[in-house]
Design a protein around this nucleic acid. Structure first.
Length: 332
DNA sequence: AAGCCGGCCAACCGCACGTGG
DNA sequence: TCCACGTGCGGTTGGCCGGCT
């Protein structure tokens, strides 16, 4: 079974934090910075477990947190990202500066779910609520970006009502969509990290998947379209004239590619291997982008599919706007 | 005024996974 | 290769609060 709880001590405080505790934590982190959460409580004179301190700091005390209501733009961005990533709250939060995963998760459960229901959209699948009863009969017409990408939530306990893409595939979705969903699930689960300091050594590849990705650049594109006929997918990741929405993942000379979801390991490996290797790039960075295919906007204009809002589109398509750009580690 | 109810959200819990010895 | 440890993630819980009856 799992590890024993980190806060076994009977002398640990639990529950709401007092003002004094907050001040102690803030003062300590200001002096010593984040990290070493396990030892922090003792060093800071707090009767809390490290995990609790970390949570309190990240979700509440961090100075860069944006308090207050979510804007409409944030709402739409969350919906779009959720349609792409599923319940990957930390990934979604990474795209909303000043917002925490916990905050977004709560906001989703209390506001956006209701909002989507009011629009007649299933918040889990991003499909029309009556999709299953009218599947194949143009039911997708009412949806905008009703992409099923609800990943399997990192192996956590599945909620009884959660609907995975595979379940949908096996029941009501047209065959061409299956591969798209599978691949998108894999994408949503993939974790890409790079350590710049290791880059200089140009060595020490990680165990499993790196054998397939060592010195070549690989580019993976998941391209999805949602129009009157439902969602279409170019399974080979190539150009698709009907593109509406694309999820692009580019990995240039990765040092480490890891999966964070055991249930998708096979698919992830396939994902990394499947596209033909591109010529070796001179880049030494990992470039990771989540965005819309440049062709998408043009191709979409001639169809009934609806384009994302300008704000959403810009946020997603402009790598320079990514909160994580410039960081030495990228998580996807 | 009191009790009930539902929404909200901070915090907790269990687990997965990377890392280093 | 194995194991313990540290960290982070996502689901769930429980207490607070405001509205309603």
């Amino acid at each position: 079974m799992g590890r024993s709880p980190c806060c076994e001590s009977e002398h640990m405080n639990k529950g709401a934090w007092s003002k004094e505790e907050d001040e102690r934590l803030i003062a300590y982190i200001k002096r010593h910075g984040e990290g070493c959460w396990r030892s922090l409580p003792k060093a800071a004179g707090l009767l809390r477990c490290g995990k609790s301190c970390r949570l309190r700091w990240i979700n509440y005390l961090r100075p860069d947190l944006k308090r207050g209501n979510f804007s409409d733009e944030e709402d739409e961005l969350i919906i779009t990202l959720h349609s792409l990533l599923g319940n990957k709250w930390s990934l979604i939060a990474a795209r909303l500066p000043g917002r925490t995963d916990n905050e977004i998760k709560n906001y989703w459960n209390t506001h956006i779910k209701r909002k989507l229901h009011a629009r007649g959209i299933d918040p889990q699948t991003h499909r029309p609520l009556d999709y299953t009863s009218t599947a194949g009969a143009g039911a997708g017409a009412a949806a905008t970006h009703t992409i099923c990408s609800n990943a399997n939530n990192s192996g956590n306990k599945a909620t009884p009502h959660s609907t995975t893409c595979e379940e949908l595939s096996s029941s009501s979705t047209p065959p061409p969509l299956r591969a798209a969903k599978k691949r998108l699930n894999s994408l949503a689960s993939a974790v890409v990290t790079v350590r710049e300091e290791e880059e200089s050594t140009n060595n020490s590849m990680s165990s499993d998947v790196t054998t397939t990705t060592t010195t070549t650049a690989e580019e993976v594109q998941v391209q999805l379209i949602n129009n009157k006929n439902g969602i279409n997918m170019d399974e080979d990741g190539g150009a698709n004239a009907d593109l509406d929405l694309s999820l692009c993942l580019s990995v240039h000379r990765p040092k480490t590619i890891i999966r964070n979801n055991s249930t998708s390991s096979t698919a992830s490996t396939e994902l990394l291997r499947s596209p033909p290797p591109l010529p070796v790039h001179g880049h030494r960075e990992v470039f990771l982008s989540l965005g819309f295919h440049p062709d998408a906007r043009h191709a979409c204009s001639g169809t009934s599919c609806s384009a994302p809002t300008a704000t959403t589109l810009d946020l997603l398509s402009d790598p320079s706007s990514h909160p994580i750009s410039g960081a030495s580690s990228y998580w996807f």
